[in-house]
Design a protein around this nucleic acid. Structure first.
Lengths: 153, 153
DNA sequence: TTGATTTAGGTGTATATACTCCTATATTGA
DNA sequence: TCAATATAGGAGTATATACACCTAAATCAA
């Protein structure tokens, strides 16, 4: 392992963040006509596929912090794409569901997403894209492992 | 190419963003004792390695939007880790440089970074990490290609 | 049953990201 | 020279991210 001053390219975190920034800009540009950003599309598309979910459940599936998702759904609620209902069984929870408007928006955005996906795969290569997704998925689902010192009682 | 409703795992953008979120949390936790976040460390470490740079040059190297870097250096300036000087040749530009305090901070944070890097590589595998970095780097440096319709005159 | 603990989610705060529009300076061309 | 253009960077706005701390509701244990 080299020093980052000698080899800044060696940092896994920096490499992933740079790639995420770059790719997000591409997808965001293609999604722009749909009036959504990549993160918003990922939320709506997941709700469309899985049906109503609680905030915690959806955040976990999206590998997103619970509080981040709580903030990210605010503009979607404001725009009437998502509705929130108090959980029937557990009254602490909140069920998120797509509205009619949200369903329509997802369908429209899907066309944009396809273009972004096609553009990326044609320029980066479908094979390498597949390998990248597989590695990225393994990273996202991997155990964080023993992190910084946690003081337990 | 499958529908994202059928195969949300197929989205390159989502996969990269999830991985970046996950890994950033790990690195941020290890960097916490240094009082910096991963992005801040990447800025200081680059300045340390390359010496004074303008905002545009540094942003380009970090694969970061110019305006994003402009915002990201504000807390670093506030904390006295970075100093800004008007460019000598081109008076529109601004030269960013590490202060003494900034140099010391980078040295201290390097230890934290090493721990984060070691933790990640030991849990994910050094070989797969190397492959991931190589793909991520190719993505970050790749031509965005023909993006959404741009209206040129 | 009821007090302790756990869990679902929100709030305050801070940083990260990038688009659009703006000003100032530099460069270029007639 | 000087007007047109290009470039460096900032400001306004909006979303994205997550930690620490808080409240309410559910669960567990004595």
């Amino acid at each position: 392992m080299q020093s980052p001053e000698k080899n800044p390219a060696g940092c896994n975190c920096l490499a992933l963040r740079q790639a995420a920034r770059h790719v997000t800009q591409i997808y965001d540009q293609f999604l722009a006509p749909s009036g959504m950003r990549a993160t918003q599309y990922s939320i709506l598309a997941r709700l469309s596929r899985r049906g109503s979910m609680t905030i915690n459940a959806l955040a976990s599936e999206l590998v997103m912090d619970r509080t981040t998702l709580g903030r990210n759904i605010l503009p979607l609620r404001r725009d009437g794409l998502i509705a929130v209902a108090r959980g029937g069984v557990d009254r602490r929870s909140k069920e998120l569901r797509l509205t009619r408007s949200g369903e329509a928006r997802v369908r429209a955005a899907f066309e944009c997403w396809q273009q972004a996906q096609a553009q990326f795969e044609s320029s980066f290569g479908a094979g390498r894209a597949k390998a990248l997704r597989a590695l990225a998925r393994d990273v996202a689902l991997s155990d964080p492992g023993a992190v910084a010192p946690v003081d337990k009682d």
